[in-house]
Design a binder for these strands. Structure first.
Lengths: 350, 350
DNA sequence: AGCGGCTATGCAATCGATTGCGAGAGTGAA
DNA sequence: TTCACTCTCGCAATCGATTGCATAGCCGCT
């Protein structure tokens, strides 16, 4: 039932040459070392028979599989698909395929998956998982496997990383709020075991001082997950604390959405009474009212950049040509969830 | 720099047996044909050396790569990631990896990608792309490659398919609208070159007659894409036609969201004046007001089912054990975008 | 003691493509 | 005519694991 595949041997038999000659004739770089007439005869036979190279066999011999592994926390998180398309857009035209794995941000799953990818002989790994430390990936890189990380860096390693200029994003956003007259600005921080959560909190602190706004630890609440429920919970806690604030800078869009919902539950209007900002600019955000002011990250180009750097690594470019650190610009998108601070000062809600 | 991999040969040398013996000792099913003492000595050596089997080499010999191809239109479309997680949840524990490719619903890209997957020796393909006909995949299946399709079927073929019971979903939704008193119900249909668009329109027609509601072709408008812009455009056309209607059943959530927005632009309130329903129940829908009444599809289980059927195919189960057709149940989720038809009859907006 | 039969293990081919090396043909110059 | 050199192509090893077949050894039975 199943057709036998056409191999080099078949073409060799057909054209009366040796399989090695066929191999060379079909290899664009070796082709020049073959008489043009022979080469085109072989090419014709290959086309006629419908030859398709067996990448498995080639991979065994060359130990290059033209496959890369991509590790992300969870594909159902809307920020990752655009990254994957970005990666694909540079790798696929070059004949690479990618194996995508979800780590669910679990450490043992993460290291197990690194091994799975290595067993499959991937030529490199793009690691967009966000756990704050991972010995397995560091070891893989140290053993010579090309690795780049996205959105995070592995300490004490030479692994190139691509990050978004989140510091600048946070800082711009804080400036936007300040320029609107806000002074008591809360921060709804993300989980501190995820690099994004940690980095954005640090950025908030730095930005506050550099903008001559006082950093107030009591106005920081930390979410345990990046979701709406936690956003809402944090707002409840914040309101319960009785502290005054007129704006909330959230570490991600979903926290912001949860926050706005919870404020509404308490009869507090966003943006009239309290301004709220997000981070990521996830899809469909402009369908949700009030339309969220947020920091836009160029996920697609982040993916492209990661893939490009990985390619350099896999091609064995000289180290000095490979950027260790790439910082991608972000931009703030001002929509409807931010407004001038009320002139009569913060109204502490009931 | 790069460490040499440990191979069977290394273990053989270490333990003083032949590599074939090592191979058998490490293969759970062959292991019983080896003296327990030898087997465990080999196992110990393998562990000590940190042996990891080379799947490429094994794949070459056995022509099983433990890899499946998954074809979808576009990973950034929110309905696909849950499907992928569903597939992964059954395949990954068994040692399979999947290569995911985006077809962008382009025919030539689609057939090219089928070949890419075959070149890589995938053991099977789950085909969730939605073009209405594709000779390449049919040929692949005819040549013996295990294939299952998701959300669509390939005509004139034995390819098993998994679909959601969209007919039932449309019918239930129409019944819901009828029970609310609606009689003039428009259908905002999806692109007719995509199977989902076509099927849902057909289902709408059937449901109308079976519910003794007149099917009115002039109340059907067809979108060119499944997005908000097209939803809005269709509503403009519908309003411009001057026809009366009190409810709109949309072929997908995004069309519905675009429709509601456009109605609002015209000063028409949903659901008070016109009810609107969606299809898919995409994530974050409950954050958008009015919260959309829609048909929920169990994407995750669809993925699981597709993977399970593919496994049967790949394991060469006898044909009669393999379901050709699997229809998964759907459910309607009633939220805020539907309300009773106004007792004074449809108000034709200006 | 001899023989049948079974079991544990070794041997070697194999999957398909790649590649270093060498041989033969062809060319040009002396 | 011959020698040196180049160009094209064939030969065979190789990547690492799998597997059908062969064989050596052992057991038990008569």
């Amino acid at each position: 039932m199943r057709q036998k595949r056409i191999t080099l041997k078949d073409i060799a038999r057909e054209t009366g040459v040796h399989v090695s000659t066929v191999s060379r004739a079909l290899d664009p770089v070796e082709r020049k070392s073959i008489t043009e007439e022979v080469a085109s005869r072989i090419q014709a036979a290959a086309d006629a028979l419908g030859y398709r190279p067996n990448r498995i066999a080639a991979g065994l011999r060359t130990s290059r599989t033209m496959t890369v592994g991509v590790m992300i926390p969870d594909i159902t998180n809307v920020i990752f698909p655009p990254i994957l398309r970005g990666i694909e857009s540079v790798l696929e035209p070059l004949g690479y395929a990618s194996i995508i794995v979800n780590t669910d941000s679990e450490r043992d799953r993460e290291s197990r998956l690194v091994d799975v990818l290595r067993d499959r002989g991937v030529d490199g790994i793009i690691h967009a998982a966000v756990l704050r430390s991972d010995p397995t990936i560091a070891r893989a890189a140290a053993e010579g496997l090309p690795v780049v990380t996205l959105n995070r860096m592995v300490e004490d390693s030479q692994i190139p990383y691509i990050i978004n200029d989140e510091d600048a994003g946070i800082c711009e956003m804080l400036r936007h709020l300040r320029d609107l007259g806000h002074r008591e600005i809360a921060h709804l921080a993300g989980p501190q075991d995820l690099s994004t959560g940690q980095l954005r909190l640090a950025a908030f602190r730095n930005a506050a001082t550099s903008l001559s706004l006082e950093f107030r630890p009591e106005l920081v609440v930390t979410a345990r997950r990046f979701d709406e429920q936690e956003g809402a919970r944090c707002i409840r806690d914040l309101l319960a604390s009785g502290r005054k604030f007129t704006a909330i800078l959230c570490a991600n869009d979903r926290l912001a959405l949860g926050a706005i919902d919870e404020l509404r539950e308490h009869g507090i209007d966003c943006p009239r009474e309290i301004s709220v900002t997000g981070f990521n600019d996830m899809p469909f955000l402009d369908l949700i009212r009030p339309r969220l002011t947020t920091v836009r990250i160029l996920q697609h180009s982040a993916g492209q950049t990661a893939a490009t750097v990985l390619l350099q690594l896999m091609n064995g470019d000289t180290a000095e040509n490979i950027p260790t650190e790439t910082i991608l610009p972000v931009e703030i998108v001002v929509r409807e969830s931010t407004a001038p601070a009320r002139p009569d000062g913060p109204q502490q809600p009931a």
